[in-house]
Design a protein around this nucleic acid. Structure first.
Length: 570
RNA sequence: CGGGGCGUAGCGCAGUUUGGUAGCGCACCUGCCUUGGGAGCAGGGGGCCGGAGGUUCAAAUCCUCUCGCCCCGACCA
């Protein structure tokens, strides 16, 4: 492709709306433009990237026997009503009416429609397994679109769905997706992790997420380098360092007007690890007293999984239910449900004395109060791996979710009556799985992970072009002609190549080339041509090798093909 | 939805406190010149100051309402 015939509107200055690195660079380098909040135009360069990513996804999905289909983005409400999600999902779903006043919605995802299809077309155990996938637009009226193309209201998603006869078969489909996903993300040149995730609202039994390391990410994961434990902090568990158990007399101490753990800890002169934070929450059926160690935070999602929906108690509710003022609650002597974090199992602690201006020292859990033990704290960096027997600290990293895989089970098949006859002639619901990848997030993550002060550095497999040829000046006929000869040769080798045929000063071309991030640059200059050489620059390494003109085409295409193979075969 | 910030030329910004009819850099157009890391000189085009209403002789500037965008949080099949 000729630069002069391609829309590559690079910007010298960064639009002030951008925060994330990938957002800034994709704007500056002429990849995207914003139409409205969460709505982006993909310009030629980024469309090429997306196409490359999607091609890799298709190839790997096909390898596991998945079949591509395409489904409507406009759905009748009835199907969503049957699974209950028409009512469960709130403002995040775009809704509209057709001309006959029929309720419709725009697709947020396709479990319903895929299952609708399966309900009609899969009748026998002989029809399975099936894996169907599509790469298409989804729409969600996100509460907060952000970070460029990382979180948008309209986006492309690869979603696949597996249909199996039983759990064992589902496991096979699940494993196939793991294989495919590992290959897809490796080929895209990403550093990523597969982590345990919360099946959440999907209602399934098992779920994993694929996460790409990036500061721009919205999620955090806990990692153990020793055993490979990896989980979203949404559900990650940890063992905690047990502080040295100190001998504390069981006694009440006066703590005038000291309410928070920090205040009391400073007042008494003992670290927060020796305190029990007592929180009263109001569940749907009854109040629950929740205990975590003074230096830790309650993980509200973990708690919700145990006791269901809840909210924090108001000050007057604390007074009525526990008969104590907020700030002086302790676990001893209450007659309500008590839930304590596992971290508190051993040791002697201080907590509220259930009396204004007093705290209780020397509390021994299981002796002075009897809680239910659960993991309900937020995992932090440095806490210990829950799986390793020898103490191994966990790392916590910020990541972008680029893909996920869920075992759905029968939630959707039951709701939509997607059933089949097994070998015994019994009617059974189809066992399903659901698997997503966000290609735009793959692209954004690739930029987040591969850039420098000058711009983007694409992995060659998804780069808009594998190589850019830069004739230093268009005024020198000899070198310009040679540049076009190399250009034609590389194209004949099926290499995607961009030639900067603009009549610009060399500095402008070099700056733009670095910014748009094509992984290889060939510089063809008048001086070099006189010496009989061209230069091949590696965008990432910033080094250049001189190549004899006669060998240039062959030599360069060899290097490019090796670069592709390295990622494709990793 | 709660908290914060910002809307002035394509982009980045100044001007708003203290009202007087809009400016700078980059980009763009013309010419000369220049050509291995975003050159230089000269000339030029482009703005209902997000929108509506109000105060005033006079509003980018003050007041009211509204729309949009960004960030933090909540939310996130």
């Amino acid at each position: 492709m000729r630069y002069t015939k391609t829309l590559i509107p690079t910007l010298r200055e960064i639009p002030s709306d951008a925060e994330a690195i990938s957002h800034k660079l994709m704007l500056r380098a002429g990849y995207i433009r914003q139409l409205a909040s969460g709505l982006y135009i993909y310009l030629p360069l980024s469309l090429r990237v997306m196409n490359n990513i999607n091609t890799i996804i298709r190839e790997e999905m096909n390898k596991i026997g998945a079949q591509e289909v395409l489904m409507p983005v406009l759905h009748p409400a009835e199907v969503w009503m049957q699974t209950g999600r028409w009512d469960e999902i709130g403002a995040e779903m775009f809704r509209l009416k057709d001309r006959t006043d029929r309720d419709m919605c725009l697709a947020m995802t396709h479990e319903e429609i895929m299952t609708w299809l399966a309900a009609r077309e899969i009748k026998s155990y002989k029809d399975m397994p099936q894996i169907w996938f599509q790469i298409q637009t989804k729409l969600r009226d996100e509460a907060r679109p952000k970070s460029g193309i990382l979180r948008t209201r309209e986006f492309t998603m690869k979603d696949s769905y597996s249909f199996d006869t039983d759990e064992q078969a589902l496991q096979l489909s699940y494993d196939k997706h793991i294989q495919a996903y590992n290959r897809i993300f490796s080929r895209c040149g990403l550093k990523y992790y597969m982590v345990d995730s919360d099946p959440g609202m999907m209602g399934g039994a098992m779920a994993h997420e694929y996460m790409a390391k990036s500061d721009a990410g919205e999620d955090e994961i806990a990692l153990c380098d020793k055993c490979g434990y990896a989980a979203n902090v949404e559900l990650a568990v940890s063992k905690c360092n047990q502080p040295e158990i100190i001998d504390m007399k069981y006694e009440i101490v006066e703590t005038p007007n000291k309410r928070t753990v920090e205040e009391v800890s400073n007042f008494i002169g003992l670290s927060a690890q020796y305190f029990i934070k007592s929180l009263l929450v109001i569940g749907e059926k009854m109040p629950v007293l929740v205990l975590v160690r003074g230096d830790q935070m309650l993980h509200e999602n973990k708690l919700e999984r145990i006791i269901g929906k809840f909210r924090h108690a108001k000050k007057d509710e604390i007074q009525t239910i526990l008969n104590v003022e907020a700030g002086f609650i302790g676990p001893v002597g209450h007659n309500i449900r008590i839930l304590a974090d596992n971290t508190l199992k051993n040791g002697t602690y201080i907590s509220g004395a259930n009396k204004k201006d007093y705290h209780q020292k020397g509390i021994i859990p299981d002796e002075h109060f009897k809680p239910e033990w659960q993991d309900i704290h937020i995992v932090r960096e440095g806490e210990l791996c829950p799986k390793c027997t020898s103490p191994t600290p966990l790392r916590v990293e910020r990541v972008i979710e680029i893909g996920n895989i869920f075992k759905l089970g029968t939630k959707y098949s039951k709701a939509l009556n997607a059933v089949f006859l097994n070998a015994l002639g019994e009617t059974k619901p189809i066992i399903m799985g659901s698997y997503g990848i966000g290609p735009a997030r793959v692209a954004a993550a690739a930029v987040e992970q591969n850039n420098d002060a000058d711009g983007i550095i694409w992995p060659v497999t998804i780069a808009p072009f594998a190589i850019e040829i830069i004739p230093v000046t268009m005024k020198d006929n000899e070198s310009t002609q040679l540049a076009f000869e190399i250009y034609d040769y590389l194209k004949s080798q099926s290499i995607e190549v961009l030639i900067d045929d603009r009549d610009e000063r060399p500095g402008v071309k070099f700056k733009d080339a670095d910014l748009i991030g094509i992984p290889y640059q060939v510089v063809v200059g008048a001086k070099g041509v006189k010496e009989g050489i061209v230069e091949l620059k590696n965008r990432a390494a910033k080094d250049a090798i001189k190549i004899k003109i006669n060998d240039a085409g062959i030599e360069i295409s060899k290097i490019i093909k090796e670069a592709f193979n390295k990622l494709n075969e990793s």
